[in-house]
């Protein structure tokens, strides 16, 4: 892969949790404008790697670079503002807030979240709020939750909550998206439109790194695949190649 095209570079990243090396000297380059899949058995360190990228954990060793910025020393909110968004495996919507409020919270850099701006820059804030309201309406419609705008997010069905989480992520406008099992718990019809959506946003210029257990999904949308086992990258390449690798098949698929 051409390294100059890498939007995210992980160099020799190591992280131990409770004495166990969960991520072990991992080096990864994520191609800009592509979909990269991260696969591997449970406990391989995939979600830990996501936590390291989004700044929820600090690495013991190694570096993470996003574009030209070293991010492994930054707090999560700065990483989000630099352009990295994340879909959590356990969704993490704000259950007591309404669907609309959830989406209005998407902007990582809303000046109205600082009290002084509210009083001294009121007009500008009101204008931004108006813009956010319009875009929120768009995203709510986009995922088909029109009737639920004012319902508390916790009252939605699991599938709807997932759609809300996706809408909230997309409304954030990040250029790099971390998706932790985007299709888990989503019905087959919805999976199809979800995959279309992912391909569409990548065509629009975004980059996606996703964790996935459904190999059909990986084969269908991934441009590149990393296989992670016991915290190490043991295989990398095109999806067909990686999934054809005998070691991968043995370790993961059991055949």
């Amino acid at each position: 892969m051409d390294n100059r095209k890498a939007i995210l570079k992980i160099l020799n990243l190591t992280k131990s949790l409770e004495g166990l090396k969960v991520v072990d000297s991992v080096s990864i380059d994520i191609a800009r404008g592509r979909i990269t899949g991260l696969i591997g058995p449970n406990g391989a360190g995939k979600t830990t790697l996501f936590n390291l990228i989004s700044g929820l954990l600090r690495p013991d060793k190694g570096e993470i670079w996003f574009e030209d910025k070293r991010i492994d020393t930054l707090p999560s909110w700065q990483i989000a503002r630099a352009g990295i968004g994340r879909l959590f495996q356990d969704i993490r919507i704000f259950r007591k807030l309404s669907v609309l409020e959830n989406i209005l919270l998407a902007d990582p850099n809303h000046p109205g979240e600082l009290p002084l701006n509210l009083f001294f820059n009121y007009r500008n804030i009101a204008r931004i709020e108006q813009k956010h309201l319009e875009s929120a309406e768009y995203w709510i419609e986009f995922v088909g939750l029109e009737g639920k705008k004012d319902s508390p997010a916790g009252s939605l069905s699991f599938g709807q909550q997932k759609l809300l989480a996706i809408a909230r992520l997309l409304a954030g406008g990040h250029k790099f998206l971390l998706l932790d099992e985007p299709t888990a718990g989503v019905n087959p019809a919805m999976i199809k439109s979800l995959l279309n959506l992912i391909q569409r946003i990548v065509k629009g210029g975004k980059t996606v790194l996703f964790i996935e257990h459904n190999m059909n999904v990986v084969l269908k949308i991934a441009d590149w695949v990393y296989f992670l086992d016991e915290g190490r990258v043991t295989s990398f390449g095109r999806p067909e190649e990686v999934l054809g690798d005998t070691e991968v098949r043995k370790a993961y698929l059991g055949v």
Binding site: R81, G85, L97
Partner: peptide, 23 residues
């Protein structure tokens, strides 16, 4: 205001709020 909304978000789920860019 957006400030109050951001406060509610961190009360609900601080980790999600951090990853969404809330300081």
């Amino acid at each position: 205001s957006p400030f109050g909304r951001a406060l509610k978000s961190l009360r609900e789920d601080e980790i999600a709020a951090r990853v969404m860019g809330k300081n």
